[in-house]
Nucleic acid binder design. Structure first.
Length: 680
DNA sequence: CTCTCCCT
């Protein structure tokens, strides 16, 4: 290398402030409770929240809406629902507690059922997609936020519920954000109609809850202290130009100095980076003197097969240090015990949405302060820990306070369709906590118009009969549309399979280290008609061996995701049957299947240009075939794509070969307008 | 010449 290497950043660490939040708002300040004893009841009494039980109950009795700030370990999520129930608040109906993630809903319900000494599914239950463990006796119901939203379509006033607790509100998922508006409207309308009132409780782990409080008519904010152990924060003295190099140096500095039982968790941005750093760490640790002890490097990201993901929970061999290299999956979704050190690169890969181009951009960007605190917190779950931030304190101060809510970063077609199905009178002016831009709302309405899901007269938007049917499917509008027109092409069974495959994470597992093997084993499934048909072939082969796990391993198929495909397919098929859709199969005529796809997905099409490049027909922007596509080497004249993703270039992912004239027969008016737009 | 993460 021509340049002198950067001096190791870890040498320049200086101690920062320990992890104490001094900006506590007035409210209920609780002393730290002693250590939890055995016995479920005793453990409940030892939670920090227990000592303010009476206050919490009396507040909740009086208030229509309340906002809680609860630190990690405060016990808010398991205790507040029980306090409400035990105090007889909202006994006429059900207390719903929403979670952004399925596993959280399931495990919390299990925990509370244990505490109440009842069988799960009786008094305490949960509802997530594909699983409803509730009964008529259920009064405390943990559910995913998406599930409550689905239920709201049939019951916009949420009349089954007397209390809705929106937990993890700081994460600002689209579902939670839409629910804010739904529960607020339900609360108001129930009051107007003299129905049983709806209590709303918002729970957040971060301090900046003014927005929530303002939104719910300035409802009071109550503070609950947690049981987070102190975390020493370190910053670098100088900004780092290469966060990977900085991470590497920090890992080995800790490795040289700390006892081998102290595990390290490193936050990185993606699979490729993680696998590369894993390789480097293993190489270096092999060449260290024996005195420094060995190192067990474990990669962690979502597309890893389940068996490999489980490795993060296994203790390292005696005398070896566990180093986990993870994406933001370890920020919230997966909790690993024994982490003493967190190394935060300060970077994350995240999606942004450009409403003008309709383009989603996946880019490496800086985390928010809230995210940085979340990452640091992963070091203090059982004991005091340390967090090494690979950026300066100034850089930290310049980070955004909160991550931009997802609703301002995604395509809103589904959201708008859902709101219309809920009977929201004026969608364009829906009362969001954080408004998405008017352009992205307009883009969504326009997309739904083109699909025939909505009618627009001046500023009034309404659902068409087709749109009403589309909203019944838990799918993106373009997919429900494709499914609904599939009987015209006598291929509903094939479309069900393809859409299920496209709406879960990829069923293909591509370990970079075994690339040649993957290519040779996948050959037998590949179709010159594109990725959709290739996926269909894989699904059919999977069915033929009845989902055999060994077959999956040999063929680099992710069996968990493939299992999910089966569940999604069964659910969609049930909805089709309820709608009296004719379920026919077009086993051999796959051209017919592709023609059906063209009729539903015509908005995502691209055409080959004379110079060999591609242009998206909707936005006219230059696009390229993603190298993972089976059509990467081919030069198809006209294709559909499942997704546009802007990374190093603007890539089309999952392509399907089609004929250009199918597009014109599918949406003549739309393409006539597009042509006029090109000419002018 | 390559894919953050959830969810109905």
């Amino acid at each position: 290398m021509p340049h002198e290497p950067d001096p190791p950043p870890a040498k320049r660490f200086k101690p920062g402030s320990p992890f104490f939040r001094l900006d506590k708002k007035p409210g209920m300040l609780l002393p730290r409770a002693g250590h939890a004893a055995a016995g479920v009841e005793a453990q409940r009494r030892h939670l920090p929240i227990y000592q303010s039980r009476t206050q919490v109950i009396s507040q909740l009795r009086q208030l229509h809406s309340a906002v809680f700030i609860g630190e990690t370990g405060s016990g808010k999520t398991t205790q507040i629902p029980q306090y409400l129930y035990e105090a007889g608040i909202g006994r006429q109906g059900i207390i719903a507690i929403t979670q952004p993630r399925r596993v959280a809903a399931i495990s919390l319900a299990g925990r509370v059922a244990e505490e109440k000494k009842v069988q799960l599914g009786k008094l305490v239950g949960y509802t997530v997609r594909f699983e409803d463990v509730t009964s008529p006796e259920t009064k405390l119901k943990f559910m995913t936020d998406g599930m409550l939203l689905r239920e709201a379509i049939g019951d916009p006033l949420l009349l089954r519920y007397t209390v809705v607790i929106l937990d993890e509100a700081h994460e600002r998922t689209v579902h939670t954000d839409v629910l804010f508006g739904v529960v607020k409207a339900a609360q108001r309308r129930r009051l107007e109609q003299n129905k049983i009132p709806l209590k709303v409780v918002v729970m957040s782990a971060t301090m900046d809850v003014d927005l929530f409080s303002q939104y719910f008519n300035k409802s009071p904010v109550l503070y609950l202290e947690g049981r987070q152990h102190p975390i020493q924060i370190y910053y670098t003295k100088q900004p780092q130009s290469d966060y990977l190099q900085a991470a590497l140096v920090s890992i080995f500095q800790i490795h040289q100095e700390a006892p081998s039982s102290h595990d390290i968790l490193v936050f990185l941005t993606g699979q490729e980076e993680i696998e590369a750093l894993a390789r480097t760490c293993r190489d270096i640790s092999k060449h260290l003197p024996d005195t420094s002890g060995s190192m067990t490097v474990v990669p962690l990201y979502a597309s890893l097969p389940p068996a490999q993901q489980m490795r993060v929970f296994l203790p390292a061999p005696k005398g070896s240090r566990k180093v986990i290299l993870s994406t933001n999956i370890a920020e919230t979704s997966i909790t690993i015990s024994g982490i003493k050190y967190v190394i935060d690169t300060g970077m994350v890969k995240a999606k942004r949405f450009n409403p003008d181009s309709g383009l989603e951009v996946l880019a490496v960007q800086r985390v928010s302060k809230a995210q940085a605190w979340q990452r640091a917190g992963r070091a203090g779950r059982e004991d005091a820990g340390s967090c090494y931030r690979l950026y300066t304190e100034d850089e930290f101060e310049n980070l955004a306070n909160m991550t931009v809510p997802e609703i301002q970063r995604c395509n809103l077609a589904s959201v708008v369709l859902q709101l219309l199905a809920l009977g929201v009178p004026d969608v364009l002016n829906f009362d969001f906590v954080s408004k998405p831009s008017p352009e992205s709302m307009r883009t969504a309405v326009e997309q739904l118009c083109i699909l025939g899901a909505v009618d627009r007269k001046d500023d009034h938007v309404s659902l068409t009969p087709l749109g009403k049917k589309m909203a019944c499917f838990p799918l993106e509008p373009r997919f429900s549309k494709t499914l609904l027109i599939s009987p015209d092409f006598s291929c509903t069974e094939e479309i069900l399979t393809i859409i299920s495959l496209l709406s879960v994470d990829s069923v293909l597992y591509n370990p970079p280290a075994r690339r040649d093997e993957v290519i040779s084993v996948r050959k037998k499934f590949i179709s010159s008609e594109g990725d959709h048909i290739t996926l269909l072939n894989i699904y059919r082969a999977f069915k033929k061996v009845s989902g055999n796990k060994d077959w999956c391993r040999e063929n680099f198929v992710n069996s968990r995701n493939m299992g999910l495909v089966g569940e999604v397919r069964a659910q969609l098929r049930d909805i089709c049957i309820k709608m009296n859709l004719k379920l026919e199969s077009s086993v051999c005529d796959l051209a017919n299947v592709r023609r059906c796809l063209a009729h539903g997905l015509f908005m995502s099409a691209a055409e080959l240009q004379p110079d060999g490049s591609y242009v998206a027909l909707d936005t006219h922007q230059p696009v390229s075939i993603h190298p993972s596509s089976v059509l990467f080497q081919a030069r198809p004249v006209c294709v559909l794509f499942n997704e546009l993703l802007h990374t190093s270039r603007c890539y089309m992912r999952d392509l399907c070969l089609i004929q250009t004239d199918w597009l014109h027969e599918a949406a003549p008016e739309y393409f006539r307008r597009k042509l006029r737009a090109i000419k002018s």
